[in-house]
């Protein structure tokens, strides 16, 4: 249920952000290893698009409308205590404060289409589950969570489509944070590593809210 790691990969496959959230540091994974990791993920993502099985190709070409909608799952990564009674406990100001340039209590409130149609979406291993969200501009957000799920409501199987949807919601919010704190930083050069303390802070807040 806990987020272990977040990676952001630019459209050429270079790593521009990586962050570990676990207390224990991974044994000797230096920044070079992370770069290699990012490019392997980028490459496998590309290979995956060519592996669609024949049966699926045949059925897809016949039916034109395939549903790639990701439903909106409320308050993923948003602070708890949304009811009025709990809010009065915290006082008048919401614990999170404003969401940058997004008005309201959540970044978005409707379901959306996934831009990731034939690339890798989820990778389940013994110890963790990794989710990938790709934007229309080629940016990839990768999150690895320790075994269990992203949602506390489903502890049994981590191989559920629901978990992929929760991850998509979460990573889209990280994308919103990126569009605010990284894109609007005039001193940030495109495609370069992200060095923004505001972005780090907001990401940590959102990850903490997820547990």
């Amino acid at each position: 249920m806990a987020v272990r790691m977040l990676l952001v990969i630019n459209k050429s496959g270079g790593l521009i952000y990586h962050r570990s959230f676990e207390g224990d540091v991974d044994k000797g994974l230096n920044s070079n290893d992370y770069l290699i990791l990012a490019s392997i993920l980028h490459g496998s993502f590309a290979i995956a698009t060519q592996l669609t099985p024949k049966a699926l190709q045949l059925s897809q070409s016949s039916s034109k409308n395939i549903d790639y909608t990701v439903p909106y799952i409320p308050y993923v990564g948003m602070p708890r205590g949304r009811t009025s009674s709990e809010r009065s406990k915290y006082g008048a100001s919401a614990p999170q404060g404003k969401l940058g340039s997004f008005k309201g209590d959540d970044f978005f409130k409707e379901s959306f289409q996934s831009w990731n149609r034939s690339g890798v979406r989820q990778l389940c291993t013994d110890q963790f589950t990794m989710y990938i969200y790709q934007t229309m501009t080629g940016l990839k957000f990768v999150v690895a969570c320790s075994q269990g799920t992203l949602s506390p409501a489903n502890p049994s199987s981590s191989n559920n489509i629901f978990n992929i949807h929760v991850a998509d919601n979460f990573l889209r919010k990280i994308y919103c944070l990126y569009s605010d704190y990284v894109m609007k930083d005039p001193f940030y050069s495109l495609e370069m590593p992200i060095k923004s303390t505001l972005f780090d802070k907001k990401v940590k807040q959102m990850v903490d809210n997820l547990v």
Binding site: F108, W115, T135, M136, T137, Y175, M183, L190
Partner: peptide
């Protein structure tokens, strides 16, 4: 423009 487009896509998530 190259930065604003990310804001637009993150905010609306409209398909291509």
């Amino acid at each position: 423009g190259v930065r604003l487009v990310e804001d637009f896509l993150a905010r609306t998530a409209l398909p291509r």
